[in-house]
Design a protein around this nucleic acid. Structure first.
Length: 587
RNA sequence: GCGCCUUUAACUCAGCUGGAUAGAGUAACUGCCUUCUAAGCAGUAAGCCAUUGGUUCGAGUCCAAUAAGGCGCGCCA
């Protein structure tokens, strides 16, 4: 798990502290506590591989010009035994360091030896993280927002795992509460519609189930549905299937019994459907956590009781309110309605309490749509009131996905039944493209999804660009192998021959992978990895064009370049693997 | 009215905790296949980083105000 960039910059830090120490000891520098300086990678390569701003931040204390301080420091620097072979003072007083050849060879060697583990770090070692994402209502199909959440959540979970965290993926199943009530009501209505004389005549006339559903769905006058009902075709399908399997017997029972029978029939099917569809999207959860378990265990009501015991609730107009404004939220909110039924927030509080306290996760990460942002401070306020460190809950807010068709906005409408679902989306565009595309931008940016472009499998889609780089390397390696040329064994010294700018840049980028993983994990931003893979592909293509492997001037160079190609293939495979995107060997 | 997010090239977006001359991809234009995959590469052109103040050695980056757009603010979830 070596991070050569980290190692090199740690060396610089040490060199700086040593030099400053000697300056202080010899009385050339004041013995005051030194300000913190930074070692960074300059954008312009002529400024060296690393730069330290030590001299600049010391200007005040030294009461001297940064460049003068830099000269004093540089006189004390001893580079022997480090990765560097040159130091330079430049600009306003930067101290620039230039890497020696050995570092580059070690990078390539590290990628090869660490193989499928190259890029992993130990940043999160010993920390348990729970990533909850999608958590779509089991009352209907998943929409495009869920598709984005799925790609981001799954990518993030994988990244956290690569950064050394102990990660679990979880889907919170809302199998209780008001939306299930509405689900039952809608199913019941559709069922009774089918049992009515109009429904029966449609069933007699129609040849297929699809026709029946369409006819019932489109006949708004004959089968009016209340405003708040779920109006998707899938509801009719469930009712129809129930009817076919169980007959009309339940029509004679009470409305409540009918609702229960239909929910018990349809809900497991829906949940299984979610699992199946997400699996197709290459998402497999460690745990499907059911909201209903929080109700049956009494955890939900215990939240209200505990908050009340602590004196954080009050009654108003028959409802129980939580004094959220005392804990940083914008306003108080209702926990228990005047009808005695808790609002949706209470099970959510219980759920997060369960994550952080009962199950003891160090971090709970939720991927939520940005329309939930107002709810986050409330949830955190409740956790704080319960004595839980609310900072352990991090929420990644996703801005809305805007679907574009023919240059116009195609509005999402879950209830109209006309929404583009996750499933239909994946029928239209390759899964590789979807997963890559949804991770192209950070979660917090408004996302414009051009359906026409995504549907058309054109080379404009950057995922092809990256996959193409991988396929090119594979074909190159196998071509050479056919000629009996391989590089299964090599020494680090043999790689020192790589010194073309394109080779150097490529290696620099290989070295950056562990840092990219850490950065993506820290910022909860999987888009950094897609960008990294594009960057890697770009630099490989440049190298490919400028440096022939097959026709290298010498066999030594040919071998070194082949090793470089092998390491790039590995890094590409690892970064696309994090996003669960395939690496074709031929295209 | 209050709160959150966004505003960088014609379009879609990067720019990590402030650092040296602002970066990609599309689209436009010009070149490069008798040589490892041209789904590629090289080059040209394109920007008052929304506006105005402030903080400091130094601001696209931090702070304040303004403008435009998106989203929230329910005894819905």
């Amino acid at each position: 798990m070596a991070d050569l960039i980290k190692l090199a910059s740690a060396q610089i830090r040490e060199l700086m502290l040593d030099s400053l120490g000697r300056l202080v000891a010899s009385g050339k520098a004041p013995s005051e506590p030194l300000p913190d300086f930074r070692v960074e990678i300059p954008a312009d390569k002529s400024h060296g591989d690393f730069a330290a701003n030590t001299a600049m931040v010391c200007a005040k204390i030294f009461k001297s010009a940064p460049r003068k301080i830099a000269e004093m420091i540089c006189e004390e620097i001893v580079l022997d035994g480090t990765y560097f072979d040159r130091v330079e003072i430049a600009g306003p007083g930067f101290i620039n360091f230039f890497l020696g050849r050995r570092w580059f060879s070690e990078v390539v060697n590290t990628v090869i030896t660490e193989k499928d583990n190259y890029g992993k770090t130990e940043t999160g070692k010993g920390k348990k993280v729970l990533v909850e994402f999608v958590s779509a209502n089991p009352t209907g199909p998943m929409h495009v927002g869920n598709a984005r959440g799925g790609a981001i959540g799954d990518g993030l979970a994988e990244i956290m795992s690569w950064a050394g965290y102990d990660v679990q993926r979880e889907f919170y199943v809302n199998d209780a509460g008001n939306q299930i009530e509405k689900f039952g009501k809608s199913l019941e209505l559709r069922f009774m519609q089918l049992c009515s004389s109009d429904g029966k005549s449609i069933m007699d006339k129609s040849s297929s189930d699809e026709d029946i559903c369409k006819a019932v769905y489109s006949d708004e006058d004959m089968f009016p549905m209340p405003e708040d009902a779920y109006r998707g075709v899938d509801i009719i399908e469930h009712a129809l299937n129930y009817l076919k399997e169980n007959g009309t017997e339940v029509a004679e029972s009470s409305v409540e019994d009918r609702k229960k029978a239909l929910v018990d029939y349809a809900l497991p099917k829906n949940i299984a459907g979610l699992e199946r569809d997400l699996k197709k999207y290459r998402i497999v959860y460690d745990n499907w956590f059911r909201e209903s378990t929080l109700h049956s265990s009494g955890d939900v009501m215990k939240i209200v009781e505990t908050l009340t015991e602590k004196g954080y609730t009050y009654e108003q107009e028959g409802a129980v309110w939580f004094k959220a404004s005392q804990f940083g939220a914008d306003k108080d909110f209702v926990l228990v309605r005047s009808n005695g039924i808790p609002t949706y927030v209470v099970p959510d509080i219980a759920y997060h309490y369960n994550k952080l306290v009962t199950r003891g996760y160090d971090k709970a990460i939720d991927i939520l749509g940005a329309d939930h942002h107002g709810y986050v401070p409330r949830l955190k306020a409740a956790l704080t009131a319960l004595g839980v460190d609310a900072a352990k809950l991090d929420v990644v807010l996703m801005q809305m996905v805007r679907l574009m068709r023919n240059g116009e906005v195609a509005k999402l409408s879950k209830r109209s039944g006309k929404a583009i679902t996750l499933v239909t989306l994946l029928d239209e565009i390759p899964i590789d493209a979807a997963r890559f595309f949804f991770n192209l931008r950070e979660a917090n940016s408004h996302f414009e999804f051009d359906l026409d472009l995504a549907v058309e499998q054109s080379s404009q889609n950057p995922v092809y660009y990256v996959q193409y780089a991988h396929a090119r390397i594979c074909s190159l390696i196998s071509n050479l192998a056919e000629q009996g040329f391989t590089a299964d064994k090599f020494s680090i010294e043999e790689l020192n021959i790589l010194d073309k700018p394109q080779e150097i840049e490529l290696i620099r980028l290989l070295a950056a992978m562990p840092g990219e993983i850490d950065s993506a994990a820290k910022n909860y931003d999987p888009a950094k990895i897609t960008k990294y893979s594009i960057d890697l592909a770009t630099h490989f293509h440049k190298f490919y064009d400028a440096c022939s492997v097959k026709n290298a001037e010498t066999d030594e160079l040919k071998k070194a370049r082949l090793v470089l190609c092998m390491s790039v293939r590995q890094a590409l495979k690892n970064s696309l693997g994090i996003l669960k995107i395939n690496c074709p060997e031929k295209m």
